[in-house]
Amino acid sequence: MCLYYQDHVDQAFQHFQRVLRLFPDHEKTKEIYKKAKNLKLKKEEGNEAFKAGRVQAAYTLYTEALQIDPHNLSTNAKLYFNRATVSSKLGRLNEAIADCSAALELDSIYLKALLRRAKCYMDLGEYEDAVRDYESACKMDKSRENKRLLQEAKLTLKKSKRKDYYKILGIDRNASTDEIKKAYRKRALVHHPDRHANASDGEKKEQERKFKEVGEAYGILSDPKKRARYDNGQDLEDMDGMGANVDPTTVFQAFFGDQYAFGNGGFTFQFG
């Protein structure tokens, strides 16, 4: 029984069979042996289904296996992990996280379950949870791969807390220089404060904020070096004074020159 509960099923079978040869009517042995065989069979069926690409069938089989013996914590931890792998493949990430958590409750040092949960957190954009799990994983196993995963998670978390300049300009991360300029031209003209001179005080402040963000975004993304550093997750404060300290009016004038003029709430086009 000790071997069975430690998931050494084949070794446990040898002992069960020896007992039954000596005492064919030993009820406790017959009961536990039957349960062990059913559990092993159901788990193997689930594994075979998963390898064959029948992921939903695998999920069902792992679920049925989990109902056979709730006292076999070691095997059930692996079954929860297997089902989490299936859920992850099916895109059901929250279910995968729940199953990884269940596996870790049964086996707190189950590294594979911890790494799987961390990956699901990353895919869901829950980066702080992912960093926490990768930190725990590195405490268990300081492998180069685990350290790499932790650093990537920390960098992604850092990026997620910054302003998304691509989103502010409404462009994707592969946008060309011309696309960045076009996006800035469009957004800057829309949000320029003089265009909203007659708006409420609250709306004026909102447009000023957006105008400044558009200027920041253009100031960073239009410069290849600053853009590369931004994409790599470097702090804006380190970018030669760019970022939060940008003067949006200066950026606007540098971009448009004398093409547009503003004043007293007016917004006029200057012809050459």
Rank of each mutant, 00 (worst) to 15 (best):
K119M: 05
R187D: 01
L189M: 10
T156F: 05
H196A: 03
L149T: 06
V190C: 11
R187A: 02
D201E: 11
E152I: 14
D178H: 15
H192L: 01
L111G: 03
K159Y: 03
Q151G: 07
K205H: 05
N146P: 09
D141F: 05
S108K: 11
L106F: 13
A183N: 01
M122T: 09
D141T: 12
D172K: 15
A113L: 11
L111S: 04
G125V: 06
K112E: 01
K181E: 00
D129G: 13
Q151F: 14
K159Q: 06
R148P: 02
K119N: 08
S136C: 13
D123W: 09
K181P: 01
D201W: 11
K204C: 03
D201Y: 11
I180Y: 00
D123I: 11
D129N: 14
C120A: 14
R187N: 00
S176E: 04
Y110V: 07
K139G: 00
T177A: 06
K112M: 04
M122P: 08
L115H: 05
K167F: 02
R148E: 02
D107C: 15
D123S: 14
I180R: 04
D129W: 12
Y166L: 07
Y121G: 07
A153G: 13
L155G: 00
L157G: 10
Y127M: 13
K161R: 14
K158M: 03
S143V: 10
R195A: 04
L106M: 10
R195Q: 00
E179T: 15
I180Q: 02
K139V: 03
S160P: 06
L114A: 10
M122V: 15
N198W: 10
L157Q: 07
K142M: 06
E152V: 13
R132W: 01
M122Y: 12
T177I: 05
D107A: 15
E128V: 15
S136V: 10
A183S: 07
L111Y: 03
I168R: 01
E145G: 12
D164Y: 09
S143N: 09
C120M: 08
R117V: 09
K158A: 00
N198R: 13
R132D: 01
S176N: 07
Y110L: 03
H191E: 04
A183T: 10
K161C: 03
D133H: 15
M140N: 02
G125D: 06
K182I: 10
Q151M: 13
D129T: 13
L155N: 01
N146K: 06
L155M: 07
A153I: 14
K163W: 02
C138V: 14
G170V: 09
L157S: 12
I171M: 13
Y127P: 08
E152Y: 12
H191L: 01
A130Y: 14
N146L: 08
A118R: 08
Y166K: 06
T177D: 07
E203I: 05
D129C: 15
V131M: 11
T177K: 11
D123N: 09
L114M: 11
D164M: 09
A153H: 07
C138L: 08
K159S: 03
Y127I: 11
D164V: 08
S176Q: 04
A175G: 10
D178M: 12
V190Q: 09
L189R: 11
R173I: 12
E128R: 15
Y134D: 01
N174V: 08
S108E: 03
S136A: 12
P193D: 00
A175D: 08
L149R: 12
K112S: 05
H196W: 07
